[in-house]
Design a protein around this nucleic acid. Structure first.
Lengths: 218, 218
DNA sequence: ATGGACATGTAATTTGTTACATGATTGC
DNA sequence: GCAATCATGTAACAAATTACATGTCCAT
């Protein structure tokens, strides 16, 4: 069954959907009621999309918006003189909504999630690093993740109650739980790190505090 | 002449490390005892690196190896006639090890993890999709994640026991726990999805099984 | 002999980032 | 008046993928 490519005809159409996920993400942002500027889109992406699907650079958002408009999936209008600031607002078109629905509801597998975790890369290479330094890095990560958690909970609270937003809400709930898990995972890793290479001057039988600790209490 | 930097005193040095994380990842693969080919590196990346830091395309691995060698961080040798197959094996150099240790142990923050989760993107856009289709997608994700979990556990078992590998081992343990959490998160999301939009023909009071689990023990 | 895994690479293209450039408006 | 935020873009570059091209070795 595996029509392996050796002398096979070209274009085997990877998914048939044409656009990269990022384009659908931007169009998705537009699919909720109202029109918005690229700048607003970026802020929204930072505040919620990034928790489960990264936030593109502002310059890329503008580029995607232009592409979406060229495809007829979005329309734009310049603000008139009644508005204080000159800006360009985008809205999804019917065609865009149809295309997006076809993508979102398509039978095609969503594809595996991709995780790039720089901290884990360093832990993995931990044999080259100072144990204390490594623990400090994990501590920073925990602190940052708790900050993200607060932000995600805020975003969730803002989405709460609105019925139209039930699905973004579900995605945000997933994100909150995921971030909670991220903190727990990092804390467990700290324990593993202690077991693997106790910091110099620490008595293993003393069962010291993992992160903010001073191994020598004198 | 394109002046690469127009005497701008703007706050500088994003990390000061020059190379992208992917280059360090490849060099990291090389930092463990033994020498290996690009092809072997790719397989190893698929089998373990990808659980916490994605697996680059084979062509990119070859490109990174060339860059690493040009920098003096790796050396390569062609297999002699004693070996059946012509290939090029790479090894880390002392300079490479020093540079890698400086990167891994540096005080610089590791930076935030980036997660690109195509399934969540679709759930987030769930108002455009068929509820049943969405649930099916989540089910596929759970099945795939369980498969990954098995692979990660296998990789962990292979690393078990070897003392030199304590840090890769910690990274793998984190990965296993993370995948376990991923399954739980998806199952919880299935419940949320049921609450948001019960599938047509489903009696909400019937408490049907979401996908893999049986919440009612009889 | 055929196909699959091993093995290495190039070319074209796409995707995404950072730096730069510009200017209006708001709040202090 | 000045800084911060709003707002939009371009240019240069870096990162990464896919498609292609080529060939060997091994098992059936």
């Amino acid at each position: 069954m595996t029509a392996r490519r050796t002398t096979s005809p070209r274009h085997e159409v990877p998914s048939g959907d044409g656009l990269p996920p990022t384009a659908w993400a931007v169009l998705g942002l537009l699919s909720f009621p109202g029109e918005r500027t690229g700048y607003e889109l970026k802020k929204w992406a930072d505040a919620s999309l990034r928790f489960f699907y990264w936030s593109p650079a502002i310059s890329q958002i503008y580029a995607e918006l232009r592409r979406l408009e060229a495809l007829g999936y979005a329309s734009s209008r310049r603000s008139g003189p009644e508005e204080p600031r000159a800006k360009r607002s985008y809205a999804i078109t019917d065609e865009g909504r149809t295309a997006l629905a076809a993508w979102a509801g398509g039978a095609a597998d969503a594809g595996p999630p991709v995780l790039k975790h720089p901290l884990l890369l360093r832990v993995w290479l931990g044999h080259l690093a100072d144990p204390g330094q490594l623990r400090a890095l994990v501590g920073e990560h925990i602190a940052r993740t708790r900050g993200d958690l607060k932000e995600a909970r805020d975003a969730l609270a803002r989405a709460e109650g609105t019925e139209e937003w039930s699905h973004p809400h579900i995605a945000l709930r997933w994100s909150v739980r995921r971030l909670e898990s991220e903190v727990e995972l990092a804390e467990a890793m700290l324990t593993d790190l202690d077991a693997a290479g106790p910091p110099p001057g620490t008595d293993p039988s003393a069962a010291g505090q993992p992160v903010g600790d001073s191994p020598t209490p004198g």
